[in-house]
């Protein structure tokens, strides 16, 4: 270490750690009066103080590890969720993310004031170094909260999207041993995965030898969609079922030819009705037209 030792002082980081541990109670008390804590813990002030202490402990741990600049420091783990909940509560109360950020920033001055009280006789250089370190640490705390809040939001969106996908993928039993999945809308990789799983599960449930994937409602077929279709057909075949793709409209067929897309040896039909006709024929089922004399298979 360079000869930066001022009296008993260690590095500014360890200084901050000791300060946080020493002043834990007071910091938590002051934070409890700040808008962020006051607004979240409306029922009990003690709760706000306890939450504040947890955050102080986390900061002290991060300082102890000398990782004040690292939002991924292990010390933050314990309070990450709680901080995210607090930020989320403020957003729900109608605050913009800039306002939440400002409330977080407001946690810094009370701590800084306490720090300065603690260092009345310290050399100016040391005060500056300590205040600087504290500033960095509080800045990192803000990053942690923002990061966590963002990813929580993303996780919620992902969950809802997945639920929506599941709802939007109905499996219809067309005949004994024949299921169909009509697809409507764009097929991205998340959706394709859900479609594939849903279709294959229904093959097992219904012991369906035939599955029809109807893409009448799919606006475009690009190479990615074609690949997904072929994967689904291949997986169904491994399970012992035949998967037919129906609803390839003339416009789509044309684009596919232009793009040079080939569905390999996938059985395709123009419409769902044609696909069902093919399947029934394969099953050896006859359709009797009323009034007609004999059985006619489509």
């Amino acid at each position: 270490m360079p000869e930066q030792a001022h009296g008993t002082a260690g590095s500014p980081t360890l200084e901050i750690r000791d300060f946080l541990r020493r002043r834990r109670e007071q910091i938590a008390q002051r934070w409890a009066d700040e808008p962020l804590f006051r607004a979240v813990f409306t029922v009990s002030r003690d709760e706000a103080v306890e939450a504040g202490k947890a955050v102080v402990d986390a900061l002290a741990q991060v300082a102890d590890a000398e990782r004040v600049e690292d939002p991924d420091a292990a010390g933050f783990t314990a309070v990450r969720e709680q901080l995210a909940r607090m930020a989320a509560a403020r957003s729900r109360a109608g605050l913009s993310s800039a306002q939440v950020s400002a409330e977080l920033a407001a946690l810094r001055p009370p701590v800084e004031n306490l720090l300065l009280e603690d260092l009345p006789d310290a050399p100016a250089e040391q005060v500056r170094a300590c205040a600087g370190t504290l500033g960095v640490l509080m800045g990192t705390l803000r990053v942690v909260v923002t990061q966590t809040a963002l990813s929580e939001g993303q996780a919620l969106i992902d969950r809802q999207r997945l639920q929506l996908l599941e709802v939007a993928t109905p499996v219809i039993k067309l005949w004994d041993g024949v299921v169909a999945v009509p697809l409507i809308g764009t097929l991205d990789s998340a959706r394709s995965q859900v479609v594939m799983e849903t279709l294959l599960e229904s093959i097992v449930e219904q012991q369906a030898r035939f599955a029809i994937l109807d893409i009448t409602g799919v606006p475009t077929v690009d190479s990615l969609v074609a690949q997904h279709l072929m994967k689904t057909v291949a997986a169904a075949r491994l399970m012992g079922a035949e998967c037919i793709v129906s609803g390839i409209r003339p416009a789509i067929a044309q684009t596919m030819v232009h793009l040079g897309l080939d569905l390999g040896n996938v059985v395709t039909r123009a419409s769902l009705a044609d696909a069902l006709g093919y399947v029934l024929h394969e099953l050896g089922v006859g359709i009797v037209t009323p009034g007609a004399k004999g059985a006619v298979t489509r």
Binding site: A155, D158, R159, L162, D188, S189, A190, Q193, S223, L224, Q227
Partner: peptide, 10 residues
């Protein structure tokens, strides 16, 4: 967990 598979490279 819960992330869609990455699209297979061409």
């Amino acid at each position: 967990v819960g992330r869609p598979p990455r699209p297979r490279e061409e």
